[in-house]
């Protein structure tokens, strides 16, 4: 469907509830952690991933088969949701799923930049966003970055990419283009969002998404020691920091951590913030942010069962499942121990 027509949360929620039941549970993860990549592919073939594994089995094997099947399943599931949804509900879901459009735009641009063959770029796309196949095909056919920018002119990425293209021409690096794409996605999460009682929680979740992104980027900048103004990387729309506050806080990671600790997210992230003080790696903190977002989304599903919230909660759970299975398969391939892999998984 599309943004036209009437909103149909009851129908979509009913379909999503059935899909949610098919997600892997703790017992499945316990089994997966003990399997090798080939066994994982076999296990997936016997579950909801059968179609994807069979379709890709002739082209890929081992962990690559697992990863591409996961991406294809993710795309199929989210496309189904967008197909089912109509009216305002479509708009609410598409806001979040545009992150895959952003991913695809960046993948196409990187492909052109690095002279990667079209087939390889196409394999790396995750067609789970709002772009239709025709637009994706047109992007894949583009031979220059300027053509990609032109072909995106009717989307939310068009105007910011046009501005960033000048910077790209000057610097020769993709950073301005990639940042413009991601910024367009994040800043459009909340633009024009009409909130009522049913969508209030969804809005809270989107705030958290932006705040967490700002917090992790500020910490990355602070820890990198690079002489960069953090406000350049600030995403508007969050509630935790303003651009000027972030600029001040980024020079002192301790103050930044204190600020997060004292915020509404403090309780959820308390343990991770304590670890962050001790460790020199941000990975644990990022994992904690992901877990906090997932927890947030879990709670979304229970308050208004017939709103967009349970659907977003399912989308996040599905994303997390894909990430967990991929982590297990890649971890096993790299020879990581079961404990190390389990530590990386985010399971509620």
């Amino acid at each position: 469907m599309s943004a036209t027509g009437s909103s149909n949360p009851e129908y979509v929620n009913a379909r999503v509830r059935a899909r949610r039941g098919a997600l892997y549970d703790d017992e499945d993860y316990r089994k997966l952690v003990r399997m090798g990549p080939a066994e994982i592919a076999r296990f997936m073939e016997e579950s909801t991933y059968e179609e994807e594994i069979n379709a890709l089995g002739a082209r890929f094997s081992g962990v690559d088969l697992v990863e591409f099947a996961l991406n294809r399943s993710l795309a199929k599931q989210f496309n189904d949701i967008l197909d089912w949804a109509g009216g305002r509900l479509y708009d609410l879901i598409a806001r979040y799923l545009r992150k895959f459009d952003a991913w695809n735009v960046k993948t196409v641009i990187r492909g052109i930049y690095a002279d990667t063959p079209r087939e390889e770029v196409e394999t790396d796309l995750i067609r789970a966003g709002e772009f239709d196949d025709r637009l994706v095909e047109r992007l894949l056919e583009a031979t220059t970055i300027e053509e990609v920018v032109d072909r995106l002119s009717g989307t939310i990425y068009g105007p910011p990419l046009r501005t960033a293209y000048e910077d790209y021409e000057e610097s020769g690096v993709l950073v301005p283009l990639e940042n413009a794409v991601d910024r367009a996605f994040y800043e459009n999460l909340l633009t024009g969002l009409v909130t009522n009682e049913a969508t209030e929680q969804y809005r809270e979740f989107l705030y958290a998404e932006i705040d967490f992104r700002n917090a992790r980027n500020a910490l990355r900048l602070a820890r990198s020691g690079a002489n960069i103004d953090p406000s350049e990387y600030y995403i508007d729309g969050g509630r935790l920091f303003s651009a000027s506050e972030l600029s001040q806080l980024a020079s002192s990671p301790e103050e930044l951590v204190t600020r997060i600790r004292e915020s509404t997210y403090g309780d959820r992230l308390s343990a991770a913030l304590t670890d962050l003080d001790r460790a020199d790696s941000l990975i644990g903190f990022e994992r904690a942010l992901e877990a906090a977002l997932l927890e947030y989304s879990e709670s979304l599903g229970h308050v208004f069962p017939l709103s967009v919230s349970p659907i977003i909660s399912y989308i996040l759970a599905k994303e997390r499942e894909v990430e967990n299975i991929r982590a297990i398969a890649r971890g096993r391939e790299a020879g990581l121990s079961e404990d190390e892999i389990e530590e990386e998984l985010v399971i509620l």
Binding site: L174, V175, E178, N217, S224, Y233, I235, S281, I283
Partner: peptide, 16 residues
């Protein structure tokens, strides 16, 4: 290289 010289965008990438 510093974090902004590696080519990939900062906003959509991770500490990993």
């Amino acid at each position: 290289k510093s974090i902004d010289q590696r080519g990939y965008g900062l906003l959509g990438s991770s500490a990993r």
